[in-house]
Each structure stands twice: as C-alpha cells, then as structure tokens.
C-alpha cells in the first residue's frame, strides 16, 4: 500500500464541524461587505483631504523644520565631539548588510514572505548596530528574547528572563565603551522578537564577535 495515498484519503475526513463552517462563511461574507462599504465611504468627498489642507500642512512642516534646524545643528555638533563608535561588529560589513538587504528585497518582490526592515537600506554597519541596540534597550517594545545553541531552533524553554536580557544588553554596552568585545565560552544564537512584528536573529561567536546571522530572516505576517 502506498502511504501517501492512504494518508491523503484519511485526511479528507478531517474537516471542521458543519456549524463552524457555516459560521466562518457567514463571517467572511460579512467582513467582505464591511470592506466594500469602507472603500465606498473613503471615496466620499468629505473623507478626502483637501488640497488647501495639504498645502497648509506642508507650510506648517516647513516652518517647523526651519525652526528646529538650529536645534538639530547644535545636537550634531555635540555628537561630533564625542568619541567615534568603536564596537566590534564582526563580519557585519556594509557590503554584507547591503547584500542581505538585496536578498530580503528579492524575497519581498517575488517570494512568499514580506520582510519588515528595521533599518534604512543605506544604513551603515554602525547605524544598524545602534538601531538594534535601541530595540534591545526598549524593554516595553520587546516581546520575547531567546538564547539557543542551535541556529534553527528556539524553544520555549530557551526564552530569556528579563534580567538576563538586561545582562546581555550590559555586556554589549561594555563592549562598546571599552572596545573589548564580549568574551563567552562558545557560539550562542539569539532571536529577538519585538512587539511591532520585527524579528532579529544574531549570534555571538568565536568568543568575541557579534554578527547578525541572517538579516533576510526578518519577517512579519
């Protein structure tokens, strides 16, 4: 007997209850109608922003921008006075980051997934690291952080406690300040799930180097 044929045959009998099916179909129809109504509603003139309102907004933004410009200039001057960023980000060269961005974009265009980028396409390695570090520092924005010895599997038991996330963050901070990267015992993989749907995987390896292992695995659904 062929296993596949038998398995497919049996699967045909795995169906939801008739009541459930009816409820679902009715819900789907209902949602579709609501969707159409919403489209019609948004096409009405009072739902459309007028040309004058848009011009006014642009004007306000321009004035605001000019007023803020002085402040930003000051802030930039102060930043320039501080020491340059000196964390060792390992293999995360600008080239590799751009390549990964291309991979992700390719998947977005023709593939199954819709990657959500958490940094600008033209960001430098330093900017990407800073963006990553900010996410790790924002405990409210974090959903779950996993620590695993396996790049593929992040089990529930490998979920990190809040205090361990803080320790990890502190290790990365001291790496930045002292330019002495984190020294661990072996290769460790991390997966950071943020509440806005971004998932970042990275690894600490060779006892010292931090590397974003696969930027193209940043998905949302």
């Amino acid at each position: 007997m062929n296993f596949k044929d038998e398995y497919q045959k049996v699967n045909q009998h795995i169906v939801p209850d008739e009541t459930f099916q009816k409820q679902m179909l009715s819900k789907m129809r209902q949602m579709e109608t609501v969707d159409k109504e919403m489209v019609t509603e948004t096409n009405k003139w009072y739902q459309q922003p007028s040309f004058v309102a848009i011009c006014f907004l642009i004007l306000v933004m321009m004035v605001g921008g000019i007023m803020l410009w002085g402040g930003i200039e000051d802030a930039n001057q102060q930043t320039a006075k501080t020491d340059p960023f000196d964390v060792n980000v390992g293999n995360m060269t600008t080239e590799s980051v751009l390549k990964n961005s291309e991979d992700a974009t390719t998947k977005e265009k023709g593939g199954i997934f819709s990657p959500k980028m958490w940094y600008k396409e033209d960001a430098t390695a330093e900017e990407i690291y800073q963006s990553f570090y900010q996410r790790l520092s924002d405990m409210d924005g974090l959903d779950t952080v996993y620590e695993s010895k396996d790049n593929d599997t992040f089990e529930e038991s490998e979920r990190m406690l809040e205090e361990d996330v803080l320790k990890l963050r502190n290790r990365l901070v001291s790496g930045r300040n002292s330019n002495k990267p984190y020294v661990g015992s072996s290769k460790v993989y991390y997966m950071v799930k943020c509440k806005d749907g971004v998932i970042i995987k990275f690894e600490i390896y060779d006892n010292q180097l931090l590397k974003f292992s696969d930027v193209s695995t940043i998905y949302e659904y």
């Binding site: 795995i14 169906v15 679902m24 179909l25 789907m28 129809r29 949602m31 579709e32 969707d35 948004t42």
Partner: peptide, 20 residues
C-alpha cells in the same frame, strides 16, 4: 482592510483553503 484588491475574497479563500 480598506482598499484591498482581493485575488481571492475572504469567502473564496475560506472555501478553497479552509479545510487545508
């Protein structure tokens, strides 16, 4: 929701892939 252009409407999608 909103200006979604459906390849399969929710009802069609459920009929086709609900069991799957």
């Amino acid at each position: 929701m909103g200006n979604q252009i459906w390849i399969l409407t929710p009802e069609e999608a459920y009929k086709k892939y609900g069991d799957m």
